[in-house]
């Protein structure tokens, strides 16, 4: 029973037209994944890190100005540039489409971070420190990474594992999207996101919200069935398991204004 595995391939879809840049995902992730407190010193050293971050890009000048937000986390690439460069196989692709980091194996060469085009791998330059009392809220499902270890977004694999263990192994039931959602197995950022800009499911699960986007892009139907879907920095060929939906820009700056 314990050995029975179900085929999954997880994927995330990020709707940029819905993301308001509120940072709820960022804090939810820090709480779920025992991310060390980003102190002011760490920001000044430029060594603060967030497994999911919201980037802000400016466009234009006052008064014709815009700011756009994009949440960026590990893209869990199919052709992950971080994987082949690891000398100790600390980062590898698992059979569920996730790019996994094995903390015990990592020796801290940082080759993976250098090879990642998305800058979503973070190196622990310092031993993480929490005030003694705050260690009480650390998540016991998630390893605390020590100094010298590379870490990154895991799609909250501890929640996925809990889901597979409880639903598939113990209850012998189907782990579909409604179950993931109802029983709180979705990644912390996804369940936090107040506008539902972040969605997560098995890519082949037709009850889930991501299936049609992956199908459209992977079957090269993008322009027709999912006109807003694209992958980040697609041209380098990493084939991420995260798909973004384009921001709808009703009044693009270059074309002037007008109420259309």
């Amino acid at each position: 029973m314990a050995d029975q595995r179900f085929d999954h391939k997880w994927g995330m879809v990020v709707d940029l037209d819905r993301c308001t840049g509120c940072q709820a995902c960022v804090v939810a992730c820090q709480s779920e994944n025992n991310i060390p407190i980003n102190t002011k010193d760490l920001f000044l050293q430029r060594r603060a890190y967030e497994w999911i971050r919201v980037e802000r890009y400016w466009e234009g000048e006052f008064p014709n100005v815009k700011a756009r937000f994009i949440p960026i986390m590990c893209q869990h690439c199919e052709n992950a540039p971080c994987e082949p460069v690891c000398p100790v196989y600390a980062t590898y692709h698992n059979d569920e489409g996730l790019n996994v980091q094995v903390y015990n194996r990592c020796v801290g060469t940082r080759y993976c971070a250098n090879n990642c085009p998305y800058q979503v791998r973070f190196f622990n330059y310092w031993e993480p420190v929490w005030p003694e009392r705050m260690r009480n809220h650390l998540n016991s499902d998630v390893t605390v990474r020590s100094r010298g270890i590379m870490e990154k977004c895991s799609f909250c694999i501890q929640r996925i594992r809990r889901a597979e263990l409880k639903v598939e192994q113990q209850e012998r039931a189907v782990l579909d999207y409604p179950t993931m959602k109802k029983r709180n197995f979705l990644p912390a950022c996804v369940s936090a996101c107040p506008t539902n800009a972040l969605t997560f499911a098995d890519q082949s699960d037709t009850t889930g919200p991501v299936n049609r986007y992956f199908k459209a892009l992977d079957d090269h139907e993008g322009g027709e069935s999912a006109p807003r879907a694209y992958r980040l920095i697609e041209e380098v060929g990493t084939k991420p398991n995260v798909i973004y939906l384009k921001k709808v820009d009703k009044y693009p700056l270059k074309n002037g204004g007008g109420h259309g």
């Binding site: 890009y57 400016w58 466009e59 756009r68 994009i70 920095i233 921001k247 709808v248 009703k250 693009p252």
Partner: peptide, 26 residues
Amino acid sequence: SKFEGIVRAVEIGILPGERIIQTVTP
């Protein structure tokens, strides 16, 4: 003390497909 880089973050993609935040106009 801030999270962004030293250089102001503006979109640098030249071709539409290279842009970080791609947009579509209705």
